[in-house]
């Protein structure tokens, strides 16, 4: 089985505009950056968090703390998935307690990753608030979790796969819908 790109739903410009818009929304909702810190979920949440931090920094003229969260050990499907994921480091260079944390990920689907991320972050301390920012919301939630900031809502079928490509990881910026095809 191979995955075939079906349609591009966001290009580099679209992505940049979405990030800038989310940056503004975050500032608006938090009324400033005093306690604000961004935490990107591995793998693609982290470069997105860095870009968001840069966008906010440009507007506010100050730099924001950014951390990386590895949620592997918090997944609820470890015993059922075929290929066991490599555990990597969580690197959060600040104390999360009493911070306004914005969790950043590329796609929200079932909501289980966000659920794991909430547990993971709360094991590290007691933030004042946690918000969730995603580039794409593709629906099909299995848990009562809703993102606070969304780059784009994309209705999908369960069969389809949303693939976010980022320069830092994949060499270019775009979001595409893929479909499995029997080869």
């Amino acid at each position: 089985m191979t995955l075939v790109d079906k349609a591009q739903i966001m290009d580099g410009d679209g992505m940049r505009r979405a990030i800038v818009r989310i940056a503004h929304e975050i500032l608006e909702k938090n009324r400033g950056t005093e306690n604000l810190a961004l935490v990107g979920i591995r793998t693609r949440g982290f470069p997105l968090a860095e870009r968001l931090a840069a966008a906010i920094g440009q507007i506010e003229q100050r730099s924001l703390a950014v951390g990386i969260l590895d949620i592997t050990l918090y997944r609820d499907d470890l015993t059922t998935i075929d290929v066991q994921p490599q555990v990597r480091k969580t690197e959060i260079p600040f104390d999360v307690t009493r911070k306004d944390i914005v969790l950043v990920d590329d796609v929200i689907f079932t909501g289980r990753t966000a659920r794991a991320a909430l547990d993971a972050i709360m094991d590290l301390g007691r933030p004042s608030r946690i918000h969730l920012a995603v580039l794409v919301d593709r629906g099909h939630r299995e848990v009562p979790i809703r993102p606070d900031y969304v780059g784009k809502n994309v209705p999908t079928s369960r069969r389809e796969i949303i693939c976010v490509r980022l320069k830092e990881v994949d060499g270019r910026d775009e979001v595409v819908i893929q479909e499995p095809q029997d080869s």
Binding site: D70, Y74, L78, V87, R88, D123
Partner: peptide, 17 residues
């Protein structure tokens, strides 16, 4: 084991894995 060692730096030494 590298990320596992991180747990020593935490107040709450617990993972749900």
């Amino acid at each position: 084991a590298v990320p596992m060692k991180e747990i020593f730096t935490r107040d709450i030494k617990k993972l749900p894995t």
